[in-house]
């Protein structure tokens, strides 16, 4: 019966203030989503660090493997034209 006592792990994401996206804050254990939310509120926002919380069962997260680093992320590093600093603008031109 010891299995029944083990509460699953949840990942906690907190929006620290309006205008920002939710950021991973850590994890915690809870028997269900409702208590996970409440535990997250008590644990990760007791100093007023958040305005919104998500909790996600850790098992529901699919992560990219570090081994895929090359095919996953290197092509993106190879496209400097996606970044504004790629373009040269004459001095004095504003609002660009």
């Amino acid at each position: 019966m010891s299995d029944a006592k083990d509460w699953p792990l949840w990942e906690v994401f907190v929006r620290s203030r309006r205008g920002l996206s939710h950021t991973h804050a850590g994890s915690l254990h809870a028997p269900d989503a409702e208590l996970a939310l409440r535990n997250a509120r008590d644990l990760y926002t007791r100093r007023g660090e958040g305005v919104s919380i998500w909790v996600v069962p850790s098992t529901s997260i699919t992560a990219s493997s570090p081994d895929e680093k090359d095919p996953f992320f290197e092509p993106a590093a190879d496209k400097p034209y996606r970044h504004p600093t790629f373009y040269e603008i004459p001095e004095g031109v504003k609002h660009l």
Binding site: M1, A4, K5, W7, P31, D32
Partner: peptide
């Protein structure tokens, strides 16, 4: 207590 909450969740 932990068992009760887990059982309830299940």
């Amino acid at each position: 207590v932990r068992e009760a909450a887990a059982t309830h969740a299940a």
